[in-house]
Structures are given as structure tokens and as C-alpha cells.
């Protein structure tokens, strides 16, 4: 029997995951660049640190397949050991006090849809403090767009 199959894009999967995390409002934007280029840029930890305003650096500490440990340093000297999945087109990382997520998918008709969420984690819980989540994601997308134009 040739049953029809469904394959979700990473952005569709991302919406489902974020929906289960209170406070993790998702901000999406369609960019004109091709998905390969956007994915390649977001797979670079320097870009990761650049687009997230609170970070000054992000350094890979460990990698096991798609699973990573990243040491992130903040502008005020704070540090976070982010653990999670980081591969082209997908990022979901958490530390005790941070959650950061990104997903990329080809947009039908051309361009690339990018979805972001993230913020201060409610300690010990799968939740984000719902303050400026959308604003920060929107600013991160602005910075990503700028990098893609440069």
C-alpha cells in the first residue's frame, strides 16, 4: 500500500516544540536569500553570538553528532553553558538560565523562512520569562538580515 506521507519542515516542527514552552513566542520572517546560504550562516557560532544581542561570544566546547555544548559569554560578563541540538537549519539550546531556538525552511515560491525564539529560562522549568521575547527575536532577525546583505 502506497500510503501518503507527510514530512514537516523544520519551521513547522519548531512551532510545535515552542508551543510546549510557555513564554516561547515564535517570531518568523521570510528572507529573500536561498535556504542554503541562510543555513550556512546560522550554523556559524560567531554569527549566532552576533545576532543575539546579549552575547559577545559563543564557543563550541563539545560535539557529539548534532548535539553540542556551547559556552556563551554575555555582555555583562555572565556565562552560560548551552546544551542541545545544533545543525544546519535547526538550533535548540538551553542552559539553566537561557533557552535559544532557531529554525530555517525553504519558503514555497522562493526565499527562506526563519523562525526564532528565546529568552531567560524560568529556572528548572521548560518555560521562558515572557518579557521582550518577540522584540529580541525581531532584533536578531534584523541583524541576520544585515549580515546576509553584507
Amino acid at each position: 500500500m502506497n500510503w501518503p506521507q507527510v514530512e514537516l519542515t523544520d519551521v513547522e516542527r519548531f512551532r510545535a516544540l515552542a508551543a510546549a514552552v510557555p513564554g516561547a513566542a515564535v517570531t518568523e520572517r521570510v528572507l529573500p536569500q536561498e535556504p542554503d546560504r541562510v543555513q550556512a550562516m546560522l550554523a556559524d557560532l560567531d554569527v549566532f553570538a552576533t545576532i543575539h544581542a546579549d552575547l559577545v561570544s559563543a564557543t563550541l566546547e563539545e560535539r557529539d553528532g548534532d548535539y553540542v555544548v556551547v559556552l556563551a559569554k554575555g555582555a555583562r560578563g555572565q556565562r552560560a553553558r548551552l546544551k542541545g541540538q545544533f545543525r544546519p537549519g535547526w538550533c535548540w539550546l538551553q542552559s539553566r538560565f537561557l533557552i535559544i531556538g532557531m529554525a530555517v525552511a525553504a519558503e514555497p515560491g522562493g526565499g527562506t523562512r526563519v523562525a526564532l525564539t528565546g529568552g531567560i529560562r524560568v529556572p528548572g522549568r521548560g518555560a521562558i520569562i515572557p518579557i521582550k521575547v518577540r522584540q529580541e527575536s525581531s532584533k536578531a532577525l534584523d541583524r541576520l538580515q544585515q549580515l546576509l546583505r553584507d
Binding site: A16, V21, K83, G84, W92, I99, G126
Partner: peptide
């Protein structure tokens, strides 16, 4: 509430 584990379940 471990969101990385949620990602694996996903």
C-alpha cells in the same frame, strides 16, 4: 521541563 529532551522526543 527539559526542553532538550523535548527536542529529542520531537
Amino acid at each position: 521541563g527539559d526542553t532538550v529532551a523535548m527536542n529529542e522526543v520531537l
